[in-house]
Design a protein around this nucleic acid. Structure first.
Length: 575
RNA sequence: CGGGGCGUGGCGCAGUUUGGGAGCGCGUCUGAUUUGGGAUCAGAAGGCCGCAGGUUCAAAUCCUGUCGCCCCGACCA
């Protein structure tokens, strides 16, 4: 149920510098509370020290992760943080990874990377010592610091430049083997997040730069999450909006096409300007975006109320590099600037979102500054290269499986699993001999859990105005005992005796033996988030009773001292 | 990298516009009175005003440069 082996603790000896005031640098709840409650301190942008309370939480999360990785057949190892450049050149990622990789020079002017991930090193490791199909499958993992020079570290532990991650890599003979390994991890991840008592959802995800074809993300649900997801309440479908296919259904019958007209629209550059000007809703406008795809200019058109999904666009175009065109390039190619662009008469390849096909009599730019067309119709007034799915999914879109309207939510990505296939084994020539003595590339998968991020996500999801409310499986202490007045001998004696009794039962107990006013101790107990609080005060003590309070409830119960241990054990068992 | 903001005792901030005393609240230390939701009184310690250069009789304040941090956008566990 919980992990033993941590010494109980007296608050007077604990290094837990709580802050009365909110640190000004923190914006997000988890960042604020972890700082205020004395869990973390910043050493630099995106770089933190974990204080004793945080270390306890991290160790608990790690313990659960380890148990489930081992249960699924994983073997723990530890790989270096400092990795030679040559390995990264073999996989081609020395260049591809770009500025996000920390690089350093040794005294001989040789380059090294601070590992942002460990595919290269583990592939090379396995390649050196695994030669036969008899050695597979192999599941290897570690819990290690990772280094990514994030463009913008933020939200405390949520997006650090140094963070703790569990990463497991699977090695199989073939795709069928990979499917088995992937399923093992999928199952293990579900067990982990259930055991952590976090509300989460598994969503389909884009596999991004790491490569591969199938991928799921494990999202802890929180309004402050950086990712948007959509899910279906009826069917087994949930997806990151980056990935979610948008179902398009032609609603027909369509209104009659009217005659296209050019109108004067001085100074109007945004959809909102046009909505105000024409009185037509956003859905009856079309916006035009210009991109460079591997150096070639393309136009993209979407309904006015939609957001372009660059990942989808990149996949549709099959390009490596995609970025928005600058104003000068657009002007010289189209004869007008952003805000006045449109598909009519444009001799650049146009990719239209699939919804555009069903629009009638919409408004768009005329490729002439301060002019727009109204009553534009696809097919009649312009022909796109193709109609494609390139917008972000939103709430209310139809489920691709059952057609039911989708719900939207926000989430914190705490786990991500990928089927890599042979991307790295080919690049680094990692092979084994199969039963026929034939050399085949190893089929790989990789599976990450952000350990430090999970701690932050847990706080994000479990707190109130007074502080953190730890889920029992990861709380730094299960019980805090507060004698109201440590100078009253009978209170301290009762407290100490209870403290000893509970710790002998294997519980993690924090005894607040500080000579502080009761209010201070209550405030700190709430702030640092201990689930169960035992208060030893003069009134109840005369009756041989103490007060018990659950951090997530308001009620206070009086309990006979000799029943405290049993009551606590029951509550903890229920989790 | 672009846009916005901030660097002044441990924390939160005022002071900068208009140059001339380094201040306030919290915390810390000592003593007393207190003791059930962040006590009160008395006393004390603690600051290269991010750093460098410049202007000036005089710079936290004006100028130049530089470093760091936070927030908004593209990356990801």
């Amino acid at each position: 149920m919980w992990t033993r082996g941590y010494r109980p603790m007296k608050f007077s000896e604990l290094f837990c510098p709580t802050l009365r005031e909110m640190p000004s640098e923190a914006e997000t709840v988890s960042h604020q509370l972890l700082l205020r409650a004395g869990y973390i301190r910043k050493a630099g942008a995106g770089i933190y020290s974990y204080l004793p309370l945080a270390q306890r939480v991290l160790k608990k999360i790690e313990a659960i992760v380890r148990e489930e990785m081992d249960r699924a057949g994983g073997q723990e190892l530890l790989m270096p943080i400092i990795q030679p450049r040559e390995l990264w050149e073999q996989s081609g990622r020395w260049d591809v990874y770009g500025d996000e990789m920390f690089r350093l020079l040794d005294r001989h002017q040789r380059y090294f990377a601070l590992g942002p991930t460990h595919e290269e090193i583990i592939t090379s490791l396995v390649n050196g010592d695994v030669h036969s199909y008899r050695d597979l499958p192999l599941l290897l993992y570690q819990i290690q610091n990772k280094y990514r020079d994030e463009i913008r570290p933020r939200f405390g532990l949520m997006r650090g430049r140094e963070f703790i991650m569990k990463d497991l890599y699977s090695f199989d003979m073939d795709e069928a083997g990979l499917d088995v390994s992937y399923l093992k991890m999928y199952t293990a991840y579900n067990r982990i997040f259930q055991r952590l008592k976090l509300q989460y959802r598994v969503v389909e995800a884009d596999s991004g730069a790491i490569g591969g074809n199938e991928s799921h993300e494990f999202m802890v649900l929180a309004d402050t999450g950086e990712d948007a997801i959509v899910f279906c309440e009826r069917e087994d479908f949930a997806s990151n909006v980056e990935k979610a296919a948008c179902v398009y259904r032609d609603e027909g019958p369509h209104e009659d096409m009217r005659e296209m007209q050019k109108i004067h629209t001085p100074g109007m550059r945004t959809i909102k300007d046009l909505v105000d000007f024409t009185g037509e809703p956003e859905q009856r406008h079309v916006k035009t975006l210009m991109y460079f795809a591997d150096g070639q200019l393309v136009a993209v058109i979407l309904r006015g109320d939609r957001e372009l999904n660059e990942i989808k666009l990149k996949n549709v175009l099959g390009c490596n590099q995609l970025f928005m065109a600058d104003d000068d390039s657009v002007r010289s190619a189209c004869g007008a600037g952003f805000g006045s662009l449109g598909p009519v008469g444009m001799d650049i390849k146009i990719y239209a979102d699939q919804e555009i096909a069903g629009l009638r009599n919409f408004t768009c730019g005329a490729n002439e500054d301060d002019y727009h067309y109204i009553n534009v119709n696809p097919g009649r007034d312009f022909l796109p290269e193709d109609y494609v799915d390139i917008r972000n999914a939103v709430e209310g879109d139809l489920c691709p499986v059952c057609g039911h309207p989708l719900k939207a939510a926000r989430g914190i990505e705490v786990g991500h699993i990928f089927k890599l296939g042979t991307k790295y084994s080919q690049a680094m020539n990692a092979t084994v001999l199969d039963k026929n003595g034939q050399s085949v590339h190893i089929v790989m998968g990789c599976y990450g859990i952000g350990i430090s991020r999970t701690m932050a996500a847990a706080v994000e999801q479990n707190h109130d105005e007074n502080g953190i409310i730890w889920p029992i499986p990861i709380t730094p202490f299960q019980v805090i005992i507060i004698p109201i007045n440590v100078k009253k001998q009978e209170q301290m004696e009762a407290a100490l005796s209870l403290y000893n009794e509970l710790q002998e039962l294997g519980l993690e107990v924090l005894l607040d033996d500080r000579d502080e006013r009761a209010g201070v101790k209550f405030k700190d107990a709430d702030l640092i988030g201990i689930p169960l609080r035992i208060v030893i005060g003069p009134k109840a003590l005369q009756e041989n009773q103490v007060e018990m309070k659950k951090r997530w409830e308001n009620e206070i119960y009086n309990i006979a001292i000799d029943q405290v241990a049993g009551t606590i054990m029951n509550i903890l068992k229920e989790g």
